[in-house]
Design a protein around this nucleic acid. Structure first.
Lengths: 198, 198
DNA sequence: GCCTAACCGGAGGAAGCCTCCGCATGTGTG
DNA sequence: CACACATGCGGAGGCTTCCTCCGGTTAGGC
């Protein structure tokens, strides 16, 4: 369950190729978003497409490998915050880190939301784990009365993913470029207090 | 500025093809979202791809033609509501119709947000017009004190587009399927009253 | 140094986008 | 009613991307 895991130690050349592919994938994702051409990643890593697809059977698999560490950190961070910080602050801080995470690559928010539809991938599992961690924080904040109690976790994630996505869409526009922090603040402000205002 | 406009009356066969393409495009978009294969639309309309691209030089052009009427109705609706209804209700009602509009086809929200980057298309113009109409409603609601006054129109559209998109992403999942109305209510609730809720 | 399991790489097919240009046909005119 | 030509048709073909398959190569244990 950890990237290469150990079912067999991988031959030396295979391991090197794997590493090089991962490096190039990060570069390509950073430059072109998560929709970057897989063939070009292979090309730039100096391997054939066959080799590429053996290591990463799908785009999701590659994404999972690229993000593995960050996923784990974000999940762990939720636990840490829950243990050390007041629930409402913990949720706020964590959500900010969540959107920062999903903003790492253009298209990532969409990819992560898509993967929820398909339980067969590792990316799905990672995504579900992170959301579970977030849901726990939400519950904590609700028990303290910081967040309206009729808010369900999927709703919160939908709102937050949505604003994250919307921001990512508008970067590079002549338009007033939106800041994700601002939108998050607006949304969270609105979810505080108990139920409908007035 | 109205679909075919009149620079020349179009030959009879050309007009028929145009009509058939539009019909098939609607079907294809409904079935596969706005990313539907253009070649298949042409095929199902019984014309060659050359003919297709002559009528609709880009996917955006096709989208514009398909949505032209709805765009116009939505824009006009804003004026009507502004003239007949209390500002805060007008905004709420209109935004609900806005998300209903963007939910017409899967992928539409994304397409409309994308087009804001590219001022050269007709779709862009239509989009800008609709947003301007919405912005006016927002201002009205703010002047009455119904919506927090520090909210900018692009921010509101980002939030609303985002939640619309998030909903569209989660339909068809085993997950608790989210209702766009609910998310809109949550967001709007939070934007009411004045500024930060203590 | 040899053998084999493990690994490589690229040919090739499918699908989509879009352009180009020789051919057909509608339509205004004489 | 027939003719000429502007207008419109259609699909071949170039390009990109995805992904599979399998003959050839090589690392690394013995």
């Amino acid at each position: 369950m950890g990237g290469a895991s150990r079912a067999r130690p991988l031959r030396a050349d295979a391991r090197a190729n794997y590493e090089r592919l991962l490096t190039q994938a990060r570069l390509a994702f950073a430059e072109h978003g998560t929709g970057a051409s897989l063939e070009e990643i292979a090309r730039r890593a100096g391997v054939g497409t066959g080799t590429f697809y053996r290591h990463f059977p799908s785009r999701d698999a590659l994404l999972q490998a690229v993000l593995h560490d960050r996923f784990e950190r974000l999940r762990a961070r939720a636990d840490a915050l829950a243990a050390t910080t007041e629930p409402d602050v913990a949720l706020t801080v964590w959500l900010r880190e969540f959107v920062e995470f999903t903003g790492a690559y253009r298209g990532l928010t969409a990819a992560l939301l898509q993967t929820l539809h398909d339980p067969s991938t590792e990316l799905h599992a990672a995504c579900v784990a992170v959301r579970a961690a977030g849901a726990t924080l939400l519950t904590g904040a609700q028990q303290v009365g910081a967040i309206r109690s009729d808010l369900a976790a999927p709703e919160l994630f939908a709102l937050v993913s949505g604003l994250s996505w919307a921001c990512e869409q508008s970067t590079g526009t002549v338009d007033v470029d939106l800041h994700v922090d601002r939108l998050l603040t607006l949304t969270l402000d609105g979810l505080r207090a108990g139920g409908t205002v007035r």
